[in-house]
Simulated scan of single mutants.
Amino acid sequence: MESVVLHQGGYEQPAKRIDERKARAVADDLEKRVKDKIPFPDSEALLRRVIPEHQRGEPDYDAMMPALAAVAHEQAPIVKAELDRLGALRSVAFKGVLQEGSDVYDVRFERGTLECGLSLAPDGKLSGIYFRPGL
């Protein structure tokens, strides 16, 4: 089999087979990112762009994978309301990389904090993002 297609939630996500050497290199790279806490390039800048987009109620859905864009569109009013409650962005601090590859940040606002995580698809589009109350 040369490829598979994941059919989920009305969307299709193709995946091409890669050889064992390439798969090992990808796994080793992720292991190093997790162990050494190395964010993917420009992830902080991306997060600093995404937060104001959500604060304005204008997320860039074209920069997201289709399944994420659908969820983000549905949840946009909830996310905007929470960001409005928190107020102005004060700081962004990188925490680390989760086992599945998401970069995680502590984000401080004038009236609270959030933990934010984001991940990228191989084509550079956002494949995952979350906001949850910070500690």
Rank of each mutant, 00 (worst) to 15 (best):
D29F: 15
D29R: 15
K32W: 12
K32A: 13
K32T: 12
R33G: 11
K35G: 08
K35A: 13
I38A: 08
P39E: 03
P41T: 02
S43A: 15
A45R: 08
A45K: 07
L46A: 11
R48T: 09
R49F: 05
V50D: 01
I51P: 03
P52K: 06
E53V: 01
E53P: 01
Q55G: 06
Q55K: 08
Q55M: 06
Q55T: 04
R56D: 14
D60A: 00
Y61M: 10
M65K: 14
A67N: 14
L68Y: 10
L68K: 03
A69G: 06
A70I: 05
V71C: 12
V71H: 09
A72E: 15
A72I: 09
A72F: 13
A72Q: 10
H73E: 15
E74F: 13
Q75Y: 12
A76D: 11
P77Q: 06
I78Q: 15
I78L: 12
V79D: 06
K80E: 03
E82F: 11
A88P: 07
A88Y: 11
L89S: 04
R90D: 13
S91E: 11
F94C: 06
F94E: 02
K95W: 06
K95D: 13
L98Q: 14
E100F: 15
G101L: 03
D103R: 03
V104G: 07
Y105W: 09
V107W: 01
